[in-house]
Amino acid sequence: MNAFDLTEDQHDCLQELINVAMGQASDQLARYLDTFVYLKVPSIEQVRSELLFDSLNHDLKATSIVSQGFFGYEGIRGEALLMYQPLDSSRLADLLGYEADELSFDEQMIDLSSILTTTFLNVFASQIDNQMSYSAPRLLSTNLNTINQHIQQQSFNWDYALKVRISYQVTDYSFNCDMVLLIPEEAISNIKAVIDRILADF
């Protein structure tokens, strides 16, 4: 056990915060997209930076990844990766209000990613009395090798990262995507402090 492992109570608390955030985010999303979003219980695990790439690679059949940084008060920050399996771009275009002659698939994915990330994290933040800011989302690559390179480079200054994996499945519109929140070591201890405060209230 290392200093950053979560206790059972901390894990339970974080899981519940994430479940609630995900529930509300899905509701907002479902209203916005006028569809139903299936919820799966999100998974939370701690990964060593050098294994992060393997662990993502294992999960992934993704063809493209969008990254968006987030940062809030009390040193809570990280990077959200939205990983897409091949999807039906014309439905998505319709969903996001694109005209037929301006089908920019990359832009659509970035639009959607931003919606998924910010809806989820806003609700998460409000539960812990925090507020998030976001960097502009960027398409890392539509090619897995470059994604690996990116992640390997990112990992150098982290020993551990918390990996929260959330799957979105949307009926009516054929897209599936996973959101992975990568939270660096320093931010994990900040999150733990917040969790401990919540737990102390009970």
Binding site: N19, V20, G23, D27, F36
Partner: peptide
Amino acid sequence: ISADVQPEMQNRVLALGAKAFLRKP
């Protein structure tokens, strides 16, 4: 008491006989 607060889920739950649907938190 549910984290999933989509209207469709509320309807399902109430159709199955639940007396109330409360949102988390």
